[in-house]
Nucleic acid binder design. Structure first.
Lengths: 224, 224
DNA sequence: CGTCTCTTTGAAACGCGTCAATGGCTGTGG
DNA sequence: CCACAGCCATTGACGCGTTTCAAAGAGACG
């Protein structure tokens, strides 16, 4: 595993302390790590596997916000006393996370200002990301939004192959539809179209972007 | 001015120091306080007037994210070294803000952990807010989104009157359209309709919600 | 009084959601 | 080993919600 951004600037000794202070937890498929609306009493970092962060709507339906994988963290809001999780985290495959209680992570951030800075930085990065997707939802058409979602997935959880960038998250059309605020039918149509044009490849669940740049352009042109 | 959330839990002496360390700045209509993409070298709190926070799209067009008024702050990202503003702030009317340089606010947050907590808490609150609007954009129809935007405006910048809640921000249909990701035509139609039903009142720029609850229901029903 | 910004309303075109029907793939159990 | 169920993907047809465009009204301000 490449070193998480969470650890940047920390000494090896500090990282060791940090890891030692956390408690590992195994998650089965569909098991929840944190519940939206419940008191944020723990902070966690994914070590193995992938989780999805979902938001419950007023109507009770769930919808996907984003995926997180190894090195990503969840529950930064636990640093605020009395806060509640704004999102739920659910394992999409058997996973392992390292968790810290609120007191533990609070104490660690006091002792390691660099850690606190790293977390704040990550929160700000997330803020920018959410602002961008909100703008995307507000101003662009469906094809471009789907293209952007694919590119974002490729960036956060992609691995380079000779043919292109392969997306490691197990992502369904329904997932993409929720990410982009559309229906799975429309996503299916778009992706069939793009696959016919040779921009991407979907083989039994594995999704590979063959030409990210062209995809960006295709989304913009179709949405025009 | 009611005491800003930024000051909660601080002693009077600390608040005095904080105010003394900041530098007041007057803004004319349309003057920019911070530029999206520029290095975040200052943190600011609005004292008088209202600003709008806008986001520049890839195409170069501006679009509105939200309004801020007295007691609200801008530029929390300045606490992260090397960060850039994710949004621009523009005065919508002659305004006054109190600004701190990055070094100044950094020093103050070191000395006053409570201040740092307050800022972090505010950032988390904003995160929840943006996540909510993103979900709204993704899952609900236009009428409900517009209703929500109006209710949000009423909550953040509303003043109670015998008739209902009056919105203090100088807000145009175009503004509402940008907030909700629709066109000003659709907003105009919706509001004409709601005004005919007696849910709200628009008199030369002043916007008053006569029955917020009914508005929420109307948005849901029309969007069904 | 004229210009500028904001608003209203109508009519037409279109994007996309919705529904229905079908087919492929995976895992499970007889 | 095969049959079944369940999940996910595909594709077409239809209708509705919204955008788009055009044209005109209403204040506000110099």
């Amino acid at each position: 595993m490449k070193s998480p951004l969470l650890f940047s600037g920390l000494s090896e000794a500090d990282v060791r302390d940090l890891l030692a202070a956390g408690q590992a937890r195994l998650l089965k498929r569909h098991e929840m790590l944190g519940h939206q609306g419940h008191p944020a009493d723990a902070f966690a970092m994914v070590q193995i596997g992938h989780l999805k962060l979902v938001q419950l709507s007023a109507g009770g339906s769930e919808n996907l916000v984003r995926f997180i994988g190894p090195g990503d963290c969840y529950g930064a809001v636990a640093l605020v006393s009395g806060a509640r999780y704004p999102l739920s985290a659910i394992a999409v495959e058997p996973s392992q996370v390292l968790t810290w209680t609120r007191e533990a992570i609070g104490g660690l951030t006091e002792r390691l200002p660099q850690l606190k800075s790293n977390i704040l930085e990550e929160v700000m990065r997330r803020m920018s990301g959410v602002l961008f997707t909100a703008q995307d939802l507000a101003t662009t058409r469906v094809p471009q939004r789907v293209a952007h979602a694919l590119l974002r997935l490729a960036e956060s959880g992609g691995c380079r192959t000779p043919a292109g960038v392969q997306i490691v998250h197990p992502v369904t059309r329904q997932d993409l539809a929720e990410l982009t605020g559309t229906s799975l039918f429309t996503v299916s149509r778009l992706m069939s179209h793009w696959e016919a044009e040779g921009l991407l490849l979907t083989r039994r669940g594995a999704l590979t972007l063959l030409d990210p740049d062209a995809l960006e352009r295709a989304g913009a042109a179709a949405g025009e």
